[in-house]
């Protein structure tokens, strides 16, 4: 547990420092995720060390979005007079994005994996 916490935080920190130092257009934790994936490929024993904590965190991933979500409720009035237009654009584009990406994925998958 202690080692798992240290590894996750160290990867996040390394990601954050790299992003800041190089001025990259990526969130530090995303780079930290790539780093941890690379480390596990190089040292497979790491997987067992971090697995329990990682699965515990991901099982309650939804909880971690609550503080930011409350911010939206608290600032809803800022949508103001543009609220309806913004919500309409949001609904249409989210539906369109979800539909196109799943159909393209499934379509290309059928080409490269004909038996499935």
């Amino acid at each position: 547990m202690l080692h798992a916490i240290a590894i996750l935080l160290a990867c996040q920190l390394a990601g954050q420092v790299t992003v800041t130092a190089l001025g990259l257009a990526l969130p530090g934790p995303v780079l930290g995720m790539a780093l941890l994936a690379g480390l596990m490929l190089a040292f497979p024993a790491l997987h067992e060390v971090v697995r329990g904590l990682a699965e515990g965190l991901l099982a309650h991933l939804s909880l971690l979005f609550v503080p930011a979500g409350v911010g939206v409720v608290a600032h809803l009035h800022l949508l103001g007079e543009n609220g309806i237009a913004l919500l309409a654009a949001l609904v249409v584009s989210t539906l369109a994005g979800l539909t196109v990406s799943v159909l393209v994925f499934a379509g290309v998958l059928r080409l490269v994996e004909p038996r499935s």
Binding site: L9, P27, P29, V30, M40, P67, A68
Partner: peptide, 23 residues
């Protein structure tokens, strides 16, 4: 948010943890 930030902070480590299902 002074209180909720402790939950919010865990988004960072949880994003790093996504490496495990990836692996």
């Amino acid at each position: 948010f002074d209180g909720a930030q402790f939950v919010h902070f865990l988004l960072g480590p949880a994003t790093v943890a996504l490496a495990v299902p990836l692996y």
